[in-house]
Design a protein around this nucleic acid. Structure first.
Length: 338
DNA sequence: AACTCCAGCAACCGCGTTGTC
DNA sequence: GGACAACGCGGTTGCTGGAGT
């Protein structure tokens, strides 16, 4: 059995469910204190006069002014003009952020529930770090809050759960036997759950692979981890390789996930091929093999290529309470299924 | 008590997208 | 359809307070 997946990868960045990296192709010196002259040269006017606006934490007085003004006058559809009208020495962007993330009614902070965690996991697996979309599905939560929560707590929680006891990285060999919660976590992560029954659980690494495949932009984390995957002495072996030539897509038997669900505008310069192969381990037969197979082989071996394609691309409802998206929908019309 | 470290989070920044003229 | 303005998003920064030494 051989399964190949081709995943598009945007030119300037890549992300993994838990990590993201950006190529540093910017002039770092302009990153901070970017001169306003340069903004003008580059065709971008500053959003406000930075020298005459207050920055940093908001005082209760400022909060009251802003809240009072918006409650009485509304935003007027113009955040730039709002601070002046409200008598605030603040940038319009700052006012907008303060209102949206802190002052507007029915905002909830802290104490995320298990249910919210699940929703975040599932949505993240499906659509990545599109916090505003995720926030739209969590009553009273802001994108900033969710982002912070993910970066400071949820990601660590997930990593801790995923990490096999004897290994220090996410994507390491599958020889150890993870805990049941391990599997539960993985399966709550899966963006798609088409016809795999709840007892057909993936190993953490296979689940991780599936999660990766659901991402809009995909890549791998560490070369080191790749090495451990490739060298894993298990019956199911993951082989990853990069290729610059997307021409090969057409000749590959694999599944293509052209899945920039964000806007469809992403350019693709390189392609990462993810290949899952079942290898004949004639020299690696040992008494654990059956156990390992029963644990980890349910995922791909039982499906033909066309079935795998269907699994990934089909829009089927979930058999449990995990969530998934219809990626054909536009951003505003994302459908959430339970 | 003084200091360091670090998690948490509010706020900022840059840039892509959208709206308007 | 091009230029410009404004919005909105996601990544990043940096402040703060609590824990540890």
């Amino acid at each position: 059995m051989s399964l190949s997946l081709i995943i598009t990868e945007p030119e300037n960045s890549f992300s993994f469910p838990f990590f993201s990296f950006k190529k540093q192709n910017k002039d770092i010196s302009t990153k901070t204190h970017r001169p306003r002259e340069r903004d003008r040269e580059m065709g971008r006017a500053p959003c406000c006069d930075k020298e005459n606006v207050k920055r940093g934490p908001w005082s209760p007085e400022e909060d009251a002014k802003l809240k009072d003004y918006i409650e009485k006058q509304g935003t007027g559809g113009n955040w730039i003009a709002l601070p002046h009208k409200a008598g605030l020495r603040r940038c319009g962007k700052s006012c907008r952020l303060r209102w949206l993330n802190y002052l507007r009614p029915n905002i909830r902070h802290g104490d995320f529930t298990e249910e919210e965690d699940k929703i975040i996991y599932s949505l993240y697996a499906s659509i990545g770090s599109r916090w505003s979309v995720i926030a739209a599905h969590l009553q009273g939560r802001t994108d900033n809050d969710i982002k912070n929560y993910w970066n400071t707590k949820l990601k660590k929680k997930l990593i801790a759960t995923m990490a096999p006891p004897s290994h220090h990285h996410l994507a390491t060999a599958t020889s150890s036997s993870p805990s049941p919660s391990h599997y539960n976590m993985i399966n709550s992560l899966l963006p798609y759950n088409p016809s795999v029954s709840t007892n057909q659980l993936l190993t953490p690494h296979q689940g991780m692979m599936m999660t990766m495949m659901g991402q809009q932009q995909q890549q791998l984390l560490y070369q080191e981890d790749m090495g451990s995957l490739v060298n894993s002495p298990n019956s199911n072996k993951l082989i990853m390789s990069h290729q610059e030539d997307s021409q090969e897509q057409s000749t590959n038997n694999g599944i293509m996930l052209l899945s920039d669900v964000r806007s469809g505008s992403s350019t693709t310069s390189t392609v990462t091929r993810v290949k899952m192969e079942h290898l004949d381990h004639q020299h690696h037969h040992h008494h654990h093999e059956e156990d390992e197979r029963s644990m980890s082989s349910v995922v791909m071996e039982d499906y033909g290529m066309e079935e795998i394609k269907q699994l990934i691309s089909s829009s089927c409802t979930s058999s449990n309470n995990s969530l998934w998206f219809d990626e054909n929908k536009t951003e505003d019309k994302f459908m959430l299924y339970y």
